[in-house]
Simulated scan of single mutants.
Amino acid sequence: MNYLIVSIVLVLLGLSYFLVREHRWRRRERRREQSIRTLLDEADALEASLLTCRERMQTLRGMLVDLPEEMTGDADEALAADDKVQAALRDLLQHRLWIKQHADDAGQAELDAAVEALSQSRRSMEQQLLRLDEMTAALREARAR
């Protein structure tokens, strides 16, 4: 009888251990999948911001044609960033290749660092877009005068 109780307790302990490990593994896998999804979403958002930036820069460039040179200094400086947008798009392509080739093997810390890097780049690009919007509004106002 004692052997039966000890055996049942050992089986229950083993089963509990297995269930806890399984739960932890599933939680880690869900976190990993979420990180990869977030990484891809951030890459998409950054690409959209970069393309919007390029479009707004072209609009701004078209507006500069009609204005005197002394009024276009800040805008010219912003438009000089077109090469930076191209470089950022190339870097983004490199990030996408890394995701495709290494996301399955990367550690959680690497995935988290990649997500943070893309998030930071996207936030920076959003600030640049706001700056371009402000310059465009100022140039429209100057043209209206």
Rank of each mutant, 00 (worst) to 15 (best):
L19N: 05
L19D: 01
L19R: 05
V20A: 00
H23S: 09
R24F: 03
R24K: 06
R24M: 05
W25P: 00
R26F: 06
R27G: 02
R27A: 10
R28K: 05
E29Q: 13
R30L: 13
R31V: 05
R32F: 08
E33L: 14
S35V: 00
S35P: 00
I36R: 11
T38I: 04
L40T: 12
E42H: 13
E42A: 11
A43P: 01
D44Q: 04
L46V: 12
L46R: 09
S49H: 09
S49E: 11
S49M: 06
T52H: 13
R54W: 14
R54V: 07
R54M: 10
E55R: 13
R56K: 11
R56Y: 02
M57W: 04
M57F: 06
Q58D: 10
Q58A: 11
L60P: 02
L60G: 01
G62H: 12
G62T: 10
M63I: 00
M63N: 04
L64S: 05
V65C: 03
V65T: 12
V65L: 10
V65W: 08
V65R: 13
D66P: 02
L67I: 02
P68Q: 05
P68K: 02
P68H: 03
E70R: 14
E70D: 15
E70I: 10
E70P: 10
E70V: 14
M71V: 00
M71G: 00
T72D: 04
G73C: 01
D74N: 13
D74T: 11
A75V: 04
D76G: 03
E77D: 09
A78L: 15
A78Q: 12
L79C: 02
A80D: 11
A81W: 15
D82T: 15
D83A: 12
D83M: 07
D83F: 06
D83W: 04
D83T: 08
K84A: 12
K84F: 06
V85A: 07
V85Y: 08
Q86G: 05
Q86V: 10
A87T: 05
A87L: 07
A88F: 05
L89R: 09
R90K: 14
D91F: 06
D91E: 15
D91G: 13
L92P: 13
L93N: 12
L93V: 08
L93I: 04
Q94I: 03
Q94H: 10
H95I: 07
H95P: 05
H95W: 08
R96C: 04
L97Y: 00
L97F: 01
L97H: 03
W98F: 06
I99F: 10
K100S: 13
K100R: 15
K100L: 15
K100D: 13
Q101W: 07
H102E: 14
A103W: 11
A103N: 12
D104T: 14
D105L: 11
D105I: 07
A106V: 08
G107F: 00
G107E: 12
Q108A: 11
Q108E: 15
A109F: 08
A109P: 03
D112W: 00
V115S: 02
E116R: 08
E116H: 05
A117T: 14
A117Y: 11
A117F: 10
S119T: 08
Q120Y: 04
Q120T: 15
R122I: 02
R122D: 15
